[in-house]
């Protein structure tokens, strides 16, 4: 059985925050390691500071606050 339409992956940039990804099965990080997507939408770290990379853990807010101070 084939799919009527191919799976669609969409990407949404959040200003100052992560990248929201919908419809992906895996996210491959800079080192080539594949991370399985287990939730309907994932937030991929865009600041490079996450402690749970490749996923966003909110650290960008701490970085922004320190930068502003």
């Amino acid at each position: 059985m084939s799919r009527a339409t191919p799976a669609q992956v969409s990407v949404e940039r959040c200003p100052g925050g992560p990248i929201l990804v919908r419809g992906a099965d895996v996210v491959r990080d800079a080192g080539g390691t594949e991370h399985e997507v287990t939730r309907p939408v994932v937030a991929v770290c865009a600041c490079g500071m996450s402690g749970r990379a490749p996923w966003c853990d909110g650290t960008h807010k701490v970085v922004a606050a320190k930068g502003a101070g």
Binding site: E12, C14, P18, L20, R39, A43, W55, D57
Partner: peptide, 14 residues
């Protein structure tokens, strides 16, 4: 909730 709510806060606001 660290991971889930990092997604949810973007969804809720934006």
């Amino acid at each position: 909730h660290v991971e889930a709510d990092a997604v949810h806060e973007q969804l809720a606001v934006r």
